[in-house]
């Protein structure tokens, strides 16, 4: 793999990691976590609200229906001398429980529609990143940033070595031993090259598949998008807090489907611009170096 700024990228990443402010949030899944993460975007908050609203509506209906059922099971037991009544229909009742659910559902559909409209609107993005799913890694290409074309910044991102060695069948190594720099467990949720993005910028993602269908999902951003060969799907995000956000491929894509995580590192804008410049420099230097060596024949898989 010789594309663009990977080698230099790793260096720049190390610098950026060190510089990442202490205020950054860490968003790993937590043991015993019961609910969606609230996330760090407007969309993810809206989705979380929708999730809670629909959940509470269901709990409400559940209390009424199951409550009635439980009361019936105690009150109308034969062993307590209950005698069966004969009635078998009531148009009024049936109308009530046809119309009331329609109203409740309309009450849920309304906010869902609003959130969906917002979610689908990729207009006004200040930055574009192309995401390509491969078996079993992700490729990220930075296409443009604030109206200018980014020059050759792109890299592959696959499962980090520390996880990959532990996850082999009968490796004898404990998944609990895989730790991120901050001490949190990032087993199967760490990659060799993180996707670095700025906070407070509307980023458009162009998601596609290189071989089979994958799905790009970071719960803290509030959505997933399928990466389908021959189709470019658009999605967007605008991250509000610096931090490291982890996700996984969500669409079955073959044997290592469980082993192609996604790690997004959101950094302040200035820091991102610095990082991007370093990447572009690296790409230029790399290209120059390759041009100079053009007379030397490449081995297979190079270039």
């Amino acid at each position: 793999m010789r594309f663009g700024g990977i080698r230099n990228g790793a260096l720049a990443l190390a610098v950026a990691t060190g510089a990442l402010s202490a205020a950054a949030v860490r968003a790993n899944p937590r043991p015993w976590q019961l609910n969606l993460p609230e996330g760090v975007t407007e969309t993810s908050h809206a989705v979380w609200d929708l999730n809670m609203a629909s959940f509470l509506v269901c709990v409400g209906i559940g209390i009424v229906v199951f409550g009635a059922m439980i009361i019936a099971m105690f009150r109308f037991r034969k062993s307590r001398g209950a005698v069966a009544e004969k009635w078998s229909h009531s148009t009024k009742l049936e109308l009530v429980w046809t119309i009331v659910p329609v109203l409740i559902l309309a009450g849920l559909a309304w906010p869902a529609t609003k959130v969906l409209l917002q979610n689908k609107n990729t207009a006004g993005a200040q930055m574009t990143i192309k995401v390509t799913g491969y078996q079993w890694k992700w490729r990220y290409d930075y296409l443009d940033y604030e109206g200018r074309t980014v020059k050759k910044v792109g890299f592959m991102s696959s499962l980090a070595f520390s996880s990959n060695k532990v996850r082999q069948l009968d490796s004898g190594l404990s998944p609990y031993s895989v730790k991120a720099a901050d001490g949190s467990n990032d087993y199967l949720l760490n990659v060799d090259h993180l996707l670095v993005v700025p906070v407070g910028v509307k980023i458009r993602f162009l998601v596609t598949g290189g071989d089979v269908i994958h799905s790009w999902w970071v719960p803290d951003l509030g959505w997933k998008m399928d990466a389908i060969p021959g189709l470019v799907n658009a999605a967007w995000t605008n991250i509000s807090k610096p931090g490291i956000y982890r996700g996984q491929c969500a669409e079955l894509c073959g044997q290592d489907h469980g082993f192609m995580p996604i790690v997004v590192k959101a950094v302040p804008k200035a820091q991102f611009e610095q990082w991007l410049a370093a990447q572009e420099d690296g790409a230029r230097l790399d290209k120059a170096a390759r041009t100079a060596q053009a007379s030397i024949p490449h081995g297979p898989g190079q270039g």
């Binding site: 790993n28 899944p29 937590r30 043991p31 015993w32 976590q33 019961l34 609910n35 969606l36 993460p37 999730n51 996850r167 998944p175 609990y176 467990n185 990032d186 087993y187 199967l188 949720l189 999902w217 719960p219 982890r246 996700g247 996984q248 491929c249 969500a250 079955l252 489907h257 469980g258 082993f259």
Partner: peptide, 22 residues
């Protein structure tokens, strides 16, 4: 339900330790 909400995809043979208990 909890596993899915916390971020565990389906059809995976292995998972992060946060999903271990459930």
């Amino acid at each position: 339900h909890f596993l899915g909400l916390a971020g565990m995809p389906r059809r995976i043979p292995d998972y992060n330790v946060a999903f271990a208990d459930f």
